[in-house]
């Protein structure tokens, strides 16, 4: 009896073995990054000859500087604005794409294109469209609005960040639309049809039927986009207004500094960034749960 293990046990063992590679990679990379990041931000870096663990002075120095809070504000502003604008476009767009119209497949493929190209391509497009020597500037000159590139309204390289937000929106609307389209396709038209038969107006159908149905898709898509936007680096670096930068750019600048000690400061930025992102996502999920509970779905 002892020699032959039970089939159930073998099956469980097989499950564990098959999960292992994934867990090793995730925990190794993630756990490692997490532990080391935390250690360093609290002053542990013996390889630079620095070991003040545990010290909070890197966080103190960071959190007491007004530049940090400005950077944090910028980071959150870009992330919020882009996610919100993206949603406002994607929700009606996904509904429109679920309708029947000519060349609908061609159009939905065209609209998906930004999803398939790198962010850096989006940034290049922003430069060629929105820069002072860009196409919009040339068009304004053609309309007689301006007669020198420098008179063109500054869209890029400002803390207003229109360029950054536009690149995010351009890149993320397809992602959100695709998510929402999948949810729409899964729910089908039955409830909408029922509402129509019962005499609901288009507006009522949208607010009372469709929107609550696609809410899970909205939440998951906006969570992913928001988290991405908070950590985005290249768009704020190229299209942003310079110092004070967004937090990821700030962290990178600390890391590029010739003085190694600044890397610990950079790690404090990184940990703060992860903390802020985590807090916002947790609050968002909590709010969503409450919403679903209020509707009696959970």
């Amino acid at each position: 009896m002892m020699r032959t293990a039970s089939p159930a046990f073998m099956q469980n063992l097989r499950d564990v073995v098959e999960m292992t590679p994934l867990l090793v990679v995730l925990l190794g990379l993630f756990g490692g990054a997490l532990v080391l990041g935390l250690l360093q931000s609290f002053g542990y870096a013996p390889w630079f000859g620095i070991n003040e663990f545990p010290t909070t002075r890197y966080f103190e120095r960071l959190w007491l500087s007004s530049d940090f809070w400005f950077s944090l504000g910028l980071t959150l502003y870009y992330a919020f604005a882009a996610t919100l604008i993206g949603l406002v476009i994607s929700v009606p767009l996904s509904i429109a794409l679920s309708k029947r119209f000519k060349a609908s497949r061609l159009f939905s493929a065209l609209i998906r294109l930004p999803l398939m190209v790198p962010y850096t391509v989006g940034i290049a497009l922003a430069l060629v469209m929105l820069g002072n020597g860009g196409l919009l500037s040339r068009m304004s000159a053609g309309l007689g609005l301006i007669d020198d590139p420098s008179q063109f309204v500054q869209i890029l390289k400002t803390h207003g960040g229109c360029g950054i937000i536009l690149v995010y929106v351009w890149k993320q609307v397809p992602f959100m639309t695709l998510n929402l389209s999948a949810v729409l396709a899964r729910t089908g038209d039955d409830t909408v049809e029922a509402a129509m038969v019962l005499g609901a107006s288009s507006r009522q159908i949208f607010w009372r039927v469709t929107l609550p149905q696609i809410m899970p898709g909205i939440v998951s898509a906006s969570l992913i986009c928001f988290a991405f936007n908070i950590g985005a680096f290249e768009a704020p670096l190229i299209l942003g207004g310079g110092y004070p930068d967004t937090l990821p750019v700030l962290a990178w600048r600390y890391f590029q500094d010739a003085n190694y000690a600044f890397q610990l400061q950079g790690m404090a930025v990184v940990v703060s960034l992860a903390l802020v992102s985590g807090l916002f996502l947790a609050a968002y999920l909590q709010g969503y749960r409450r919403f679903e509970r209020a509707r009696g779905r959970v």
Partner: peptide
């Protein structure tokens, strides 16, 4: 949730911490 976590953490934070390792 753990498997979805890489999508929910800022890429820059992961990247910089991993760079040290």
């Amino acid at each position: 949730f753990l498997i979805a976590l890489p999508l929910l953490l800022p890429e820059a934070a992961i990247g910089i911490a991993l760079l040290m390792i």
